[in-house]
Protein backbone atom coordinates (compact mmCIF):
# COMPACT_ATOMS: atom_id res chain seq x y z
CA UNK A 1 0.00 0.00 0.00
CA UNK A 2 2.57 2.46 -1.24
CA UNK A 3 1.20 6.03 -0.89
CA UNK A 4 1.06 7.36 -4.41
CA UNK A 5 1.34 11.15 -4.81
CA UNK A 6 -1.99 12.09 -3.23
CA UNK A 7 -3.77 15.35 -3.45
CA UNK A 8 -2.60 18.17 -1.18
CA UNK A 9 -5.00 20.86 -0.06
CA UNK A 10 -4.55 24.21 -1.81
CA UNK A 11 -1.91 25.55 0.65
CA UNK A 12 -1.08 28.62 -1.40
CA UNK A 13 -4.76 29.54 -1.47
CA UNK A 14 -4.90 29.32 2.32
CA UNK A 15 -1.75 31.39 2.56
CA UNK A 16 -3.26 34.16 0.45
CA UNK A 17 -6.47 34.02 2.49
CA UNK A 18 -4.51 34.40 5.72
CA UNK A 19 -2.48 37.30 4.33
CA UNK A 20 -5.62 39.05 3.13
CA UNK A 21 -7.40 38.50 6.44
CA UNK A 22 -4.41 39.90 8.32
CA UNK A 23 -4.45 42.97 6.09
CA UNK A 24 -8.19 43.38 6.68
CA UNK A 25 -7.61 43.12 10.41
CA UNK A 26 -4.97 45.85 10.24
CA UNK A 27 -7.32 48.05 8.31
CA UNK A 28 -10.28 47.47 10.59
CA UNK A 29 -8.27 47.98 13.79
CA UNK A 30 -7.77 51.69 13.18
CA UNK A 31 -11.29 52.53 12.07
CA UNK A 32 -13.12 54.99 14.34
CA UNK A 33 -16.02 52.58 15.08
CA UNK A 34 -17.34 51.82 18.54
CA UNK A 35 -15.06 49.78 20.76
CA UNK A 36 -17.33 46.74 21.08
CA UNK A 37 -17.98 46.32 17.34
CA UNK A 38 -14.26 46.65 16.67
CA UNK A 39 -13.46 44.01 19.29
CA UNK A 40 -16.11 41.59 18.01
CA UNK A 41 -15.05 42.07 14.39
CA UNK A 42 -11.35 41.65 15.14
CA UNK A 43 -11.90 38.56 17.28
CA UNK A 44 -14.11 37.12 14.55
CA UNK A 45 -11.39 37.65 11.94
CA UNK A 46 -8.77 36.16 14.25
CA UNK A 47 -10.91 33.07 14.92
CA UNK A 48 -11.52 32.69 11.17
CA UNK A 49 -7.77 32.73 10.52
CA UNK A 50 -7.18 30.32 13.40
CA UNK A 51 -9.83 27.99 11.96
CA UNK A 52 -8.16 28.09 8.55
CA UNK A 53 -4.80 27.16 10.05
CA UNK A 54 -6.35 24.38 12.15
CA UNK A 55 -8.44 22.87 9.35
CA UNK A 56 -6.00 23.02 6.44
CA UNK A 57 -2.51 23.31 7.85
CA UNK A 58 -3.14 20.95 10.78
CA UNK A 59 -5.26 18.72 8.53
CA UNK A 60 -8.16 18.56 10.96
CA UNK A 61 -10.44 18.45 7.97
CA UNK A 62 -8.96 15.13 6.90
CA UNK A 63 -8.62 13.51 10.33
CA UNK A 64 -11.10 11.01 11.84
CA UNK A 65 -13.87 12.57 13.91
CA UNK A 66 -12.47 11.13 17.15
CA UNK A 67 -9.32 13.18 16.77
CA UNK A 68 -11.29 16.34 15.99
CA UNK A 69 -13.29 15.98 19.21
CA UNK A 70 -10.07 15.41 21.08
CA UNK A 71 -8.53 18.50 19.49
CA UNK A 72 -11.31 20.90 20.49
CA UNK A 73 -11.99 19.27 23.91
CA UNK A 74 -10.14 21.90 26.01
CA UNK A 75 -11.82 24.97 24.43
CA UNK A 76 -15.07 24.88 26.47
CA UNK A 77 -12.95 24.88 29.64
CA UNK A 78 -11.29 28.11 28.55
CA UNK A 79 -14.69 29.67 27.92
CA UNK A 80 -15.99 28.50 31.34
CA UNK A 81 -13.03 30.02 33.17
CA UNK A 82 -13.11 33.41 31.47
CA UNK A 83 -16.88 33.92 31.53
CA UNK A 84 -17.17 32.85 35.20
CA UNK A 85 -14.43 35.24 36.33
CA UNK A 86 -15.78 38.10 34.21
CA UNK A 87 -19.14 37.87 35.99
CA UNK A 88 -17.10 38.91 39.02
CA UNK A 89 -17.48 42.50 37.76
CA UNK A 90 -21.27 42.46 37.43
CA UNK A 91 -21.95 42.91 41.13
Amino acid sequence: MEQVKHSHPNYIGIWVALAVLTAVELGVAFLPWSKTTLILLLIGLALWKALLVALYFMHLRFEPNRLRILAIAPLPLAVILVTAVITEYFW
Binding site: L18, E25, L26, A29, L38, I39, L42, I43, L45, A46, L47, K49, A50, V53, A54, F57, M58
Partner: peptide, 22 residues
Amino acid sequence: IGLYWHFVDLVWIILFTIVYLI
Protein backbone atom coordinates in the same frame (compact mmCIF):
# COMPACT_ATOMS: atom_id res chain seq x y z
CA ILE B 1 6.72 19.08 14.51
CA GLY B 2 4.43 20.59 11.88
CA LEU B 3 1.43 20.23 14.18
CA TYR B 4 3.31 21.97 17.00
CA TRP B 5 4.47 24.71 14.63
CA HIS B 6 0.99 25.41 13.29
CA PHE B 7 -0.34 25.47 16.84
CA VAL B 8 2.25 28.08 17.85
CA ASP B 9 1.30 30.07 14.73
CA LEU B 10 -2.39 29.76 15.61
CA VAL B 11 -1.74 31.09 19.13
CA TRP B 12 0.19 34.02 17.66
CA ILE B 13 -2.67 34.83 15.28
CA ILE B 14 -5.00 35.15 18.29
CA LEU B 15 -2.37 36.96 20.40
CA PHE B 16 -1.55 39.44 17.64
CA THR B 17 -5.18 40.48 17.39
CA ILE B 18 -6.08 40.74 21.06
CA VAL B 19 -2.77 42.31 22.20
CA TYR B 20 -1.83 44.60 19.37
CA LEU B 21 -5.05 45.46 17.60
CA ILE B 22 -7.54 45.79 20.44
